[in-house]
Design a protein around this nucleic acid. Structure first.
Lengths: 132, 132
DNA sequence: TCTTGACCTTCCCACCATGGGAAGGATTAC
DNA sequence: GTAATCCTTCCCATGGTGGGAAGGTCAAGA
């Protein structure tokens, strides 16, 4: 299987497959005589795992850790759960930040009449204290 | 006022002030004979505006637009409100994505007993369909 | 007056993850 | 045999931010 076929089979772009190889996230595959990368179903399986981890928002390093645990038959599930729990906490922090932004902005938009008149509480708020 | 003092007064790092100048977000300030940048309270005010826009998650380009509107006394508030509304929608999309990730992960973490046994539904899910 | 330390300048590099594209070789289909 | 499609490596861009080097400037204190 060439890199293009592995890409189709895994959903990971050829560019990214090469990049993952470069950073050591996946092992360098065998090559043909003409230097083409050759993949098998095991490699595709790994790539799919990576893709799914990435869609869950795990960083490359977290993905690397999960991958190592996945391939370590004797690991404790607690290790995996810790990584996932930490990641949930990170995501929730991010969500709270975004919600805080949205809350403030919605309030400002609500107070901005949004017509042809120039005064606008959104800009006033961004500009800071009125006492300037 | 030197760049360091402008940084302290605005909360924008000196690095970033130079960067904003480079990308044309702020005008190049006057220079002393020895080539030091010189800032006044107007420039600091602009920098504070930028900092606040950034903390609301507006991109540099959105910030640029808001800044232009802020400095255009005759603009319609509707323009400002549109930028803010679009930004709220973007943030909400992002929030929804993150919440979806969290939802799935929480479900998986809940089902993972997290002890010394190796089997773990989190990894199983990342690995994909069982039929491999 | 001289030194020292804190400031400023420009320039380059790094991050993270991804995509674009060029130049050139290999394979495949007709 | 030729054309289209694939592969290879290499460089560049993104968006914002920080780190740091090499060298010039300024202010305060001995």
């Amino acid at each position: 299987m060439n890199i293009g076929q592995a890409s189709d089979a895994s959903g990971v772009s050829a560019k990214m497959i090469r990049y993952y190889e470069e950073i050591g996230l996946v092992r360098p595959p065998l090559r043909t005589e003409s230097n083409y990368r050759v993949y098998g179903s095991d490699e595709v399986h790994v790539l799919r795992f990576i893709r799914r981890a990435r869609t869950f928002g795990f960083s490359i390093d977290e993905t690397r850790a999960l991958l190592a645990l996945w391939q370590d038959k004797s690991r404790a599930s607690a290790e995996v759960r810790d990584i996932a729990s930490d990641h949930i906490a990170t995501l929730e922090t991010k969500i709270a930040e975004l919600q805080s932004m949205v809350g403030t902005l919605r309030h400002l938009v609500h107070r901005c009449h949004g017509d042809n008149r120039p005064d606008c509480p959104i800009l006033d708020d961004l500009a800071g204290p009125k006492g300037h």
